[in-house]
Design a protein around this nucleic acid. Structure first.
Lengths: 158, 158
DNA sequence: CCCAAACACTTTCAAATGAAAATATTTCAT
DNA sequence: ATGAAATATTTTCATTTGAAAGTGTTTGGG
């Protein structure tokens, strides 16, 4: 006798909807910017450094959603290419501050218009209001996810 | 003299907003379902097989946004565990059809309520209308992305 | 002050990944 | 019918990844 399954439709399942959009965006970006000589993770690092200024390895890792080991290697490569520089602040020597160098700033200056253009094309399918709503919902969702919604347990336990 | 940069704010940059939500969702899922003995890619395969029935390797790959090489290996592992079975259809022997076995169906039956519950908690931050809008926008975005918006060039060229 | 725990980053190592080549089948033009 | 191109999957191989261990620094309790 067949077990009765709960109602489920993949096309209406939120994580699925997000995942497939994310995958396609990532793939699309890599294609678009392959020739620019910057990988997607590298662009992410450049972007957060440009946006938030010099910051620690951990800050960049968190803001880019890239794991710490990967970040060490990534920054290592970018340092070799003189895009960024590492420096241990005297104040707290267990952290490592990363900052954009001249060459990194130039890379951003070159990429930024292309990236903005790319986003414009992507979001052309939305009306202004839709796009605004979409961004607000994505932001709200993220904020909820990171306000440690997963740790109801922890909250109760502590 | 400083180059004038175009207006840019990461927090309003659509691919960034999608990426960070996607990353957190993936991480959250792996945590939640680690003990269930099913990885996220495995769950994705189970889900599309459950939703769309028996289908080829390529179908699963496309629907899960998992690349073909990875899919071969993934299905290989799941076959060893008797979750799924491969079969070459007589009609077209270059394709490989994959279908859920008894054990795979049981896995879905076990996971589905938990997954639905998980989604419910995730989306608790939204009103019913917001959630609906969010899903519609994600779907619309995906559809546009995959209706090969990138190939304006190709369209013009052909 | 001192030492244990916490923290931030790096390294190591085993596993996962994807591009390209290899294999097998089907389609299509001649 | 026949061979070349297209399609679908698998395999190979070099790269990328992340968890866990390792290193060095800071914090906090005694």
């Amino acid at each position: 006798m067949a077990m009765e399954m709960p109602e489920f439709h993949l096309e209406r399942f939120l994580p699925y909807l997000v995942h497939r959009v994310g995958s396609h965006l990532a793939e699309g970006f890599e294609e678009q910017f392959a020739e620019a000589g910057v990988s997607l993770p590298e662009w992410r690092v450049l972007a957060v450094l440009f946006e938030y200024g010099p910051q620690t390895m951990g800050d960049i890792a968190r803001r880019t959603s890239i794991n710490a080991s990967t970040m060490t290697r990534l920054i290592g490569q970018m340092e070799k290419r003189n895009l960024v520089e590492r420096a241990r602040p005297a104040a707290n020597q267990r952290t490592v501050n990363v900052l954009l160098l001249e060459s990194g700033n130039r890379a951003v200056a070159t990429l930024l218009p292309k990236v903005l253009d790319y986003e414009k094309k992507l979001s052309a399918c939305f009306s202004g209001a839709e796009l605004e709503t979409f961004k607000i919902l994505l932001t709200k969702f993220f904020n909820t996810l990171t306000s440690d919604a997963s740790s109801e347990d922890e909250r109760l336990a502590s």
